[in-house]
Amino acid sequence: MANFTAADVKKLRELTGAGMMDCKKALDEAEGNVDKAVELLRIKGQKGVAKRESRTAENGAVVSLIADDNSAGVLLELKCETDFVAKGEKFVAVAEALAAHVAKSSPADLEALLASEIEAGKTVQAFVDEANATLGEKIVLDRFAQFTDGYVSAYMHRTSPDLPPQVGVLVELDKENAEVAKDIAQHIAAFAPKFLSREDVPAEVVENERRVAEATAKEEGKPEAALPKIVEGRVNGFFKENTLLAQPFAKDNKKTVEKVLAEAGVSLKRFQRIRVGA
């Protein structure tokens, strides 16, 4: 039996998040050497990661990190299997560490992010794999946003008081206006627009909406002569529902979001809305 103390077991648990019995076995195998035990647990944990690949990760958290002067911001989703893990401090700490790394490194896309080094000699992918091992669940990083070219603000929404935020919104204005940024971000969280404006809707999406509107109208028996007007009305309804600037503003539905922004003298350059698992 290797010579180690209860303090060694406690330290190993804090370092790895592994269970007590696993820590004792690792210390025994490592002959009481904590660093070697950490390595053994990582090795065993990596094997466990492969077994977890077939599981689904639909719980998790959305975290944000905004620069002190609001010149930049990051929004990031980290997913796990259960809400039990999602609400744990260690899981949220992993998500926050990843957001901080994005803010520092500004990766071009997810592939670049996963390949980048978050610590000396350790990629983000390896960092996430370690989280898989220590938390005992499938952990997935597959979505983030970073804005660095305007006044950036975030709104985070909790769907349950005992869970971390499940919905996050990042907005970027052309000039500083904290109140408008907050109001617009809250509106986006509630109404989930897919696009900023009509001009941002891909042509193929518009054409598909036209085809669906025309086919629906014909199925309803509408007269042929009325079809163009009906189709145009339904396409306009699609724009009103799915483009942010055309949506009625949450706090005053007599105004569109576009009008609210115009009255405030600011423009919304872009936004990102992330809901866990959606």
Rank of each mutant, 00 (worst) to 15 (best):
Q247R: 11
D68A: 15
G73Y: 09
V212G: 12
N33P: 09
G17A: 10
F147C: 09
L27G: 02
V260D: 05
D8H: 15
D149C: 08
N70I: 04
A7E: 15
K229W: 06
A226R: 13
A133G: 05
K87E: 12
M21C: 03
A192Q: 12
L114I: 02
G73F: 06
F271W: 07
F191M: 13
V128C: 03
V257G: 07
E14S: 11
A50M: 12
E96C: 09
L110A: 04
A7N: 12
R143I: 02
T123K: 00
K87I: 11
F144G: 00
D183V: 06
L113G: 01
K51Q: 13
A126L: 01
N177A: 13
V74G: 04
A18E: 04
E209W: 07
I184A: 06
E58L: 08
V152C: 11
R13M: 14
S54M: 13
L78P: 05
I43K: 14
E209F: 03
G73H: 07
K269F: 13
A185F: 06
E137S: 03
L113M: 03
N236V: 07
V85W: 09
A95C: 14
N242E: 10
E179W: 01
A93S: 13
A97Y: 05
P161C: 12
M21N: 05
D142S: 11
K11E: 06
V206Y: 01
A67H: 13
V49C: 07
V9P: 00
K87Q: 15
S105F: 10
V231K: 08
A50D: 14
S105H: 00
S116R: 00
V63C: 09
T243H: 10
P202T: 01
E214G: 06
M1Q: 04
L261D: 00
A18K: 00
L65S: 08
E137Y: 11
